[in-house]
Design a protein around this nucleic acid. Structure first.
Length: 419
RNA sequence: GUGGGCGUAGCUCAGUUGGUUAGAGCGUCUGGUUGUGGCCCAGAAGGUCGUGGGUUCAAUUCCCAUCGCUCACCCCA
């Protein structure tokens, strides 16, 4: 039997009401903040991701779905959205229409990793990018959209973590400080962290090993070595969050993995989703657009993992959706009625009612059981003496009340349904 | 890439110190009289016991391999 590819999932009819609720919430809140939707292709030239996310990152170096198409171009299924959005922003000169462009998206992403709780090979993110202003107010606003969406979904167990990475020069100076600090402790680090020491020393802060955490406990922190502008901006972000009643923690150890971040970074984590606890993450990327061939333009954004969010919602039982129900189930009493049932169903469907009926010539009892399973609000009995006399019978499934109505005047049936 | 756990009916799971026709609950279907649901009752369908090999008179059970799922590490949403 052929099964879905590892790390991919079918979203079955029973799953989709929850997904739709999530998507509707996302759209509503982004649009309240005047973000407009952007959809970019599912794949891009590989070079786009290599140049933006960074060659040395795990995403680019080992997690991308990359193949060569028949024209010999290296293509990659998008592992994240910022690169594609920025590419589209530059390609279509969106910045020439409004000085600040606020975009949101909902889209599948692809990364070839080992799946685990809250991690998939095809997964879905929503997110936003606000391009064209370096104002830290936008950093705050971006964090607020993410937070407000999670809150609107009913989530409680949330922690907002923020940090500032400063400008690239700050980071380079700081890395040297950290190397000096850790140099004589290097052999006490775990093997993974010794690799980080050489490759990307900041990531030692991400280590989950207690021994590593102990070693870096008293290390110098990047937040203490950023320039004045970054410091001031960070203060504004904190003020903004306080003004809009978003509780947050400054986490100097929050160093995010993608190369393009500058200044503000943030994450919102849940205590309810297992080890992969980040529901969303993002930050400012003031140099990325220039790097991708645009005019120097600052930007800030985030991405949120929808599977993780829904997992958190399930585990917190944070919202419920209505059970699916239909308006009318038509019961065929006589088997020889032919297409009469279909004709009546058709009239009601064209009046915008949700209508279904039996296709298997089953007994009235079986049809009623089906109507009940479908949560039909009404059943319509067609056949027998009534039908010969031009009448049909409408039954309210909740009250059990039944009414005879003339078949050639379906508008009366419709009036009854609307009542 | 590394490590742990688990693979028995559509789903959730029993079971076997190796021994006849492999079970339950839920779900599905049919029925409980002439044309009416939910509750209840009766019956039925549905299983290569993940796959391949080995040990044995005999394997769902023991051993090996393999595939799949899952959780964790790495990293990230």
């Amino acid at each position: 039997m052929i099964k879905a590819i590892k790390g991919t999932k079918d979203l079955l009819p029973a799953d989709n009401p929850r997904w739709r609720f999530l998507e509707e919430t996302v759209r509503r809140i982004f649009e309240n903040f005047n973000y407009r939707e952007i959809r970019t292709p599912i794949f891009e030239e590989t070079a786009l991701f290599a140049r933006s996310i960074g060659e040395e990152t795990d995403i680019v170096s080992k997690e991308m779905y990359t193949f060569t198409d028949k024209g010999g171009t290296s293509i990659t299924l998008k592992p994240e959205m910022t690169a594609g959005v920025v590419r589209a922003y530059v390609e279509h000169s969106l910045g020439s229409q409004h000085p600040v462009t606020k975009l949101y998206y909902i889209s599948p992403m692809f990364r070839q990793e080992r799946p685990q709780a809250g991690r998939f090979r095809q997964f879905h993110q929503f997110g936003a990018e606000a391009i064209g202003s370096s104002s830290p107010v936008l950093d705050g606003e971006i964090i607020q959209t993410a937070y407000d969406i999670l809150k609107a979904l009913g989530l409680q167990d949330l922690t907002v973590k923020i940090n500032s990475l400063g400008v690239p020069a700050d980071r380079e100076n700081y890395k040297q400080l950290l190397r000096n600090y850790l140099n004589d402790k290097k052999d006490k680090l775990t093997e993974d962290s010794r690799k980080r020491f050489d490759k990307n020393i900041l990531r030692i802060f991400d280590s989950k090993a207690e021994s590593d955490q102990e070693l870096i406990k008293n290390a110098p922190m990047l937040i203490d070595h950023i320039n004045d502008e970054s410091k001031n901006d960070f203060e504004v972000v904190k003020e903004y969050l306080s003004k809009v009643n978003i509780p947050f923690e400054v986490d100097p150890k929050l160093v995010r993995g993608l190369d393009y971040y500058t200044k503000t970074t943030f994450e919102i984590i849940s205590g309810k989703v297992g080890s992969q606890s980040a529901l969303c993450g993002g930050g400012r990327y003031d140099l990325l657009i220039e790097q991708l061939g645009g005019k120097p333009t600052p930007g800030v954004g985030f991405a949120a993992g929808m599977e993780r969010i829904l997992l958190a919602c399930e585990n917190e039982n944070s919202f419920t959706v209505d059970e699916p129900a239909i308006d009318v189930y038509i019961i065929r009493i006589d088997k020889e009625l032919g297409l009469e049932v279909s004709a009546i169903a058709s009239q009601l469907r064209r009046k915008n009612f949700t209508v279904d009926y039996d296709y298997l010539q089953r007994s009235v009892k079986a049809q009623m059981r089906e109507a009940n399973k479908l949560n039909a609000k009404y059943t319509l009995f067609i056949g027998g003496d009534e039908y010969k006399n031009g009448m049909i019978n409408l039954k309210n499934m909740e009250t059990g009340e039944q009414t005879n109505l003339p078949i050639n005047d379906l508008s009366r049936v419709i009036d009854n349904l609307k009542a």
